[in-house]
Lab assay of single mutants.
Amino acid sequence: GYDPNALYCICRQPHNNRFMICCDRCEEWFHGDCVGISEARGRLLERNGEDYICPNCTI
């Protein structure tokens, strides 16, 4: 089920109804503003069928 207190992202904070994006490599969720991806950019990636790779996986 959905846990509203689950911690995500590099900031280890809950979802808090903020835009989030999922890394296509590790499948962890990240707040867009923490990883520099706007909601519009996230939608563009999705539309173009491009993967989002998080900072942890791009090292």
Rank of each mutant, 00 (worst) to 15 (best):
G1N: 13
G1I: 14
G1W: 03
G1V: 15
G1K: 15
G1L: 15
G1C: 14
Y2D: 09
Y2T: 15
Y2N: 15
Y2H: 14
D3H: 13
D3E: 11
D3K: 13
P4H: 08
P4K: 15
P4F: 15
P4N: 09
N5Q: 07
N5V: 05
N5R: 04
A6Q: 07
A6I: 03
A6L: 03
A6N: 11
A6W: 02
L7K: 10
L7G: 13
L7N: 10
Y8E: 11
Y8K: 13
Y8L: 12
Y8M: 12
Y8P: 12
Y8V: 11
C9H: 01
C9S: 00
C9R: 02
I10W: 05
I10Q: 05
I10A: 07
I10H: 13
C11M: 01
C11W: 00
C11H: 00
C11F: 01
C11T: 01
R12Q: 05
R12T: 07
R12N: 07
Q13M: 14
Q13D: 11
P14Q: 13
P14H: 09
P14Y: 13
H15T: 13
H15L: 12
H15M: 14
H15Y: 09
N16K: 09
N16Y: 03
N16L: 08
N16M: 12
N16I: 07
N16H: 13
N16F: 05
N17K: 11
N17I: 06
N17C: 06
N17Q: 14
N17M: 09
N17L: 08
N17W: 03
N17D: 06
N17A: 09
N17E: 06
R18W: 05
R18S: 13
R18T: 10
R18E: 09
R18V: 11
R18I: 04
F19V: 05
F19P: 13
F19T: 04
F19W: 10
F19Y: 12
F19A: 05
F19H: 12
F19N: 03
M20V: 07
M20S: 10
M20T: 12
M20P: 02
M20W: 03
M20R: 08
I21W: 02
I21M: 07
I21P: 00
I21C: 07
I21A: 06
I21R: 06
I21H: 03
I21K: 09
I21F: 04
I21E: 02
C22A: 13
C22S: 11
C22V: 15
C22L: 10
C22W: 13
C23H: 00
C23Q: 01
C23N: 00
C23I: 01
C23D: 02
C23V: 00
C23Y: 00
D24E: 11
D24I: 06
D24C: 12
D24M: 12
R25T: 11
R25P: 08
R25K: 13
R25V: 12
R25H: 09
C26Q: 00
C26P: 02
C26G: 01
C26E: 01
C26N: 00
E27S: 09
E27F: 06
E28R: 10
E28T: 12
E28G: 11
W29Q: 15
W29L: 15
W29S: 14
W29E: 15
F30A: 03
F30G: 04
F30Q: 02
F30S: 04
F30E: 00
H31W: 02
H31N: 01
H31A: 01
H31E: 00
G32S: 09
G32T: 13
G32N: 05
G32M: 08
D33Y: 14
D33W: 04
D33Q: 06
C34H: 03
C34T: 01
C34Y: 00
V35E: 02
V35G: 03
V35T: 07
V35L: 09
G36P: 02
G36Y: 08
I37N: 07
I37L: 08
I37P: 04
I37M: 05
S38Q: 04
S38I: 14
S38P: 10
S38M: 13
S38T: 11
S38K: 05
S38R: 06
E39W: 06
E39H: 04
A40C: 14
A40D: 09
A40G: 07
A40N: 02
R41M: 08
R41F: 06
R41K: 10
R41L: 07
R41S: 11
G42C: 12
G42I: 15
G42D: 09
G42R: 15
G42K: 15
G42A: 14
G42V: 12
G42F: 09
R43M: 11
R43I: 13
R43Y: 08
R43Q: 12
R43W: 06
R43A: 14
R43D: 03
L44W: 10
L44G: 13
L44K: 12
L44Q: 12
L45M: 07
L45R: 10
E46H: 01
E46N: 10
E46V: 12
E46M: 08
E46G: 07
R47I: 12
R47L: 13
R47Y: 03
R47P: 15
N48S: 15
G49W: 02
G49Q: 06
G49H: 13
G49D: 03
G49K: 14
E50R: 04
E50G: 08
E50D: 10
E50W: 03
D51Y: 14
D51N: 05
D51E: 11
D51P: 03
Y52D: 02
Y52Q: 04
Y52I: 05
Y52P: 06
Y52K: 05
Y52V: 06
Y52M: 02
I53H: 07
I53V: 09
I53T: 14
I53E: 14
C54F: 00
C54T: 01
C54A: 01
C54H: 04
C54E: 01
C54I: 00
C54M: 00
C54K: 02
P55N: 03
P55Y: 04
P55W: 03
N56Q: 06
N56V: 06
N56G: 12
N56T: 10
N56L: 04
N56P: 06
C57I: 00
C57K: 00
T58A: 13
T58H: 12
T58F: 04
T58Y: 03
T58I: 13
T58Q: 05
T58S: 12
I59K: 15
I59A: 10
I59H: 06
I59T: 13
